[in-house]
Amino acid sequence: MATLPNPLPDLASSGLDLPPGSLVDGTLDGPWHEPLLWYADGPAAPRDWTALRTAGRRLGLLPVLVTGGARDQWPDAWDLHPGGTSYPGDHDADEVLAGYWTDYAHEEVDSNGSDGSDGSSSDDSKAGSGDEDGRGSWPGLAPAPAAESGEDPDEAAAGLVGVITADPDSWLGGARMALVPARRSADIPASIGWSGPMNHENDVARLCAVLRSWEDRYDARVVVLGFDTMIVSVGRPPTTPEEARALAAEHYAFCPDNIDQSPPYDLEVYAQKRLLDQEVWSFWWD
């Protein structure tokens, strides 16, 4: 992956006021030639995100919360794979999602005869044509929501972090602050060679191309990473059922497990319950 100069090797002399923590350079292929991220030894406080974002940004570092999850797997045990990660800017979000849609939705489409194999014609011009769960041919990227964002997207991300870190007994209780060398939030997974979606995509930069597109259209920010989980804040969510349905196709292509292995197991209901007016998106890959 093409990168800018990495400030992490000089973190100790950077002037940042950091809590005790560790640099991570361990990967699937052995130690990397430079640190991939820094993360704290203890739980984050609500004020840490804003403070580190302001101070770290001038150095080319962005914050993200990291969680060990139920298996207590922290970043030094994440099987990071920077050597197999390309550059997000080399990929087109529409092409990436169209490929996933073809790979992961075709069984449902074919089994319902949406390709016309049963002799009937099908309208493949939009999501929702072709089968009972709305999985016809790839409908293309959804347009940006018509409603303008009501809050600065970075402030929205900070607000979500405040909620997460204020409740130590929640399922994300104990999440820790991390700093990653990246210029935009969408690139954070690629910057560390995150392998959370490995069973879905070996090169996370392709997913980051989609995250970049969501940054542009939905004011999305990557807020939490776990071993195989991601949580995104959304400053400009869909506000109509039509907008939510259009976006649901992208979510299915991006992370099929969100629908196929998670209740309600239905794309239409997912759009209504998980996307419409929702300012937080969560993903997990089996």
Score class of each variant (00 low, 15 high):
S13E: 13
D79H: 03
G113W: 01
P88S: 14
E268I: 13
R245G: 15
G162R: 02
S191P: 01
R184P: 13
H200T: 07
L207N: 09
R221D: 12
D219G: 04
G128Q: 03
S122D: 06
A147C: 05
L65K: 08
D72R: 13
G21H: 09
S282L: 01
D103V: 02
S22R: 15
V222T: 08
R184A: 14
D187G: 02
V210W: 05
G15D: 05
A146N: 08
D94Q: 04
G30Q: 09
E151F: 09
W101A: 05
P82D: 05
V161P: 05
L225T: 04
P5W: 01
D167P: 09
G113F: 01
L211K: 02
L11A: 09
P75C: 11
S129D: 15
R47S: 14
G30C: 10
D25I: 06
L52T: 10
L247R: 05
L97H: 05
A205V: 01
L28V: 07
P263R: 06
A93R: 01
G134N: 09
K273M: 14
S195M: 02
H91R: 03
L8T: 15
D110N: 06
G136C: 06
L225S: 06
T102C: 02
L18H: 04
S114P: 09
G60E: 04
P43E: 07
C208F: 00
L276G: 11
T239R: 12
L52H: 13
P189K: 03
S14P: 00
Y100C: 11
D90G: 14
S233E: 08
M198D: 14
L37F: 03
P75L: 01
P181S: 02
D260I: 12
V223M: 03
E155I: 11
G134F: 03
N258E: 15
R236S: 15
E155R: 02
F283M: 11
L61P: 11
P153C: 15
G116P: 03
N6Y: 05
T239C: 09
N199V: 02
A51Y: 00
A253I: 02
M177I: 10
S233C: 08
M198N: 09
L18S: 13
G128I: 00
D48I: 00
G173D: 06
E95S: 07
G15V: 09
Y39T: 07
H200V: 04
A45P: 06
K273P: 04
T229P: 02
V66Q: 11
E215W: 00
P145G: 15
D152L: 00
P5A: 12
R176S: 04
W281C: 15
L8M: 12
D76F: 03
P9D: 14
P145Q: 13
P197W: 01
T239E: 08
D286Q: 08
G235K: 05
W171S: 14
V280M: 04
P145V: 11
D286T: 10
D17R: 03
L172Q: 13
A220W: 02
D257R: 01
D72P: 13
P75K: 06
R236M: 13
A70K: 06
R236F: 06
R58S: 15
C208Q: 04
P241G: 09
R58P: 08
S191D: 12
L11Y: 08
M198A: 14
A253G: 05
G196A: 00
S13N: 11
W101L: 02
H81V: 03
Y39G: 13
V224R: 08
L275N: 10
G15K: 01
D76M: 10
R58N: 12
A93L: 02
W171G: 14
V269W: 07
E132R: 07
S111G: 15
